[in-house]
């Protein structure tokens, strides 16, 4: 009996070992452990085993069953593993992707978002105003005399009503001062219009980012510190920034700001990126008159304002040579910003 058990066990293990698919493995199980299986038959014969041998034979039988079962399970896993591997065989991972549509944001949006993000973190709140403006908000209140060169139908889009398309976002300064008391700390990105023929460097409708800070004791050091910090964050911490005196009707003193652009393989050069200045007291006077109070009394408050062209910044940032790319929305261009 002992020999018989060992023989059955060895036969079963050999058969399991030889099995190469689910079916032959199942056959091996039936042959040994099935109802009419060889080990099952030996188990039935237990009743005839003399009492004093029962323990020993019983242990042998249980051992054989455990060994066969373990082997079956092991083989089962091995075969499953082979099947699983076969199920992914032949998949060529180097084939191209199943295509999905890509989309993306317009570069002007990306740039504006970055610029606006920096300034908002510096505590400026967003503001806006109408694009169809009146002469008061676009010119008069901004200390721009009636016969200023910009104020004519050749350079500015007028309507029959006498209104016009704002020539700069600076009109938002006036609108905001009219409806908010100081301290005022705002930025206003938006469209401005000039009657320019569209070419590689001009658009008749373009985008500006305007900023204004009015409070007690706002000074040139504030203007300088704020705009330096902004431009260094936009163009890189090491960027050199310089302020050149300039003239704008609505600020005094006024400056143009250059940053030193260092492009690999090119000589560094100064590029004009923004205009700025201390708000001209005449602007505050106009606002006081319009408001009918003295909240913006130039004896009490001072402020600085700045403005920049977003198309220009985008062109500098990405080396865009033709401004028209920014209005054509050619997917081959937009894709590069996706």
């Amino acid at each position: 009996m002992k020999d018989e058990i060992l023989r059955v066990q060895n036969e079963a293990l050999a058969m399991i070992h030889a099995a190469n698919d689910e079916r032959s493995l199942d056959e091996a199980r039936v042959v040994s452990l099935g109802k009419k299986g060889s080990l099952t038959a030996l188990s039935m014969a237990m009743k005839d085993v003399p009492k004093e041998q029962k323990v020993e034979i019983g242990q042998l039988l249980n051992g054989a069953r455990a060994a066969i079962t373990a082997s079956l399970e092991e083989k089962q896993l091995a075969l499953q593993n082979i099947t699983d591997r076969a199920s992914v065989a032949g998949i060529d991972a180097t084939l191209p992707a199943r295509a999905l549509h890509t989309g993306g944001l317009h570069p002007l949006t990306l740039l504006r978002e970055r610029a606006v993000g920096i300034l908002r973190r510096m505590g400026f709140a967003l503001a806006d105003g109408p694009e169809i403006e009146d002469e008061f908000h676009c010119f008069d209140a901004l200390n721009t005399p009636a016969d200023h060169p910009a104020r004519n139908v050749k350079d500015t889009f007028y309507f029959d009503s006498g209104k016009l398309l704002r020539t700069h976002t600076s009109s938002v300064q006036v609108r905001m001062m009219e409806k908010t008391i100081p301290p005022l700390r705002i930025i206003a990105p938006g469209t401005a219009y000039r009657r320019d023929e569209i070419d590689s460097t001009h658009l008749s409708a373009f985008h500006q980012l305007e900023g204004l800070y009015v409070d007690r004791d706002v000074s040139l050091p504030d203007l300088k510190g704020t705009l330096e910090a902004f431009l260094r964050e936009l163009f890189g911490a090491q960027t050199a920034v310089r302020f050149r005196p300039h003239f704008f009707p609505f600020t005094e003193p006024s400056f143009e700001i250059d940053v030193k652009l260092e492009v690999k393989g090119q000589a560094p050069r100064w590029i004009e990126v923004a205009g700025c200045g201390m708000v001209d007291p005449a602007v505050f006077e106009a606002v006081c008159q319009s408001r009918g109070d003295r909240k913006y009394d130039p004896e009490q408050v001072t402020g600085f304002a700045f403005g920049m062209g977003l198309e220009r910044l985008a062109m500098i940032q990405w080396g865009i040579r033709d401004i028209r790319l920014l209005i054509e929305n050619d997917v081959r261009f937009l894709r590069q910003f996706a």
Partner: peptide
Amino acid sequence: VEEIARVHGLDNVPSRMQGTFVPASEVD
């Protein structure tokens, strides 16, 4: 003052980084 600032140059003016806190707007 503009003449003085222009000739003095902004290079000779210190930078100050500060500003009053203002609440976010509806536009924000």
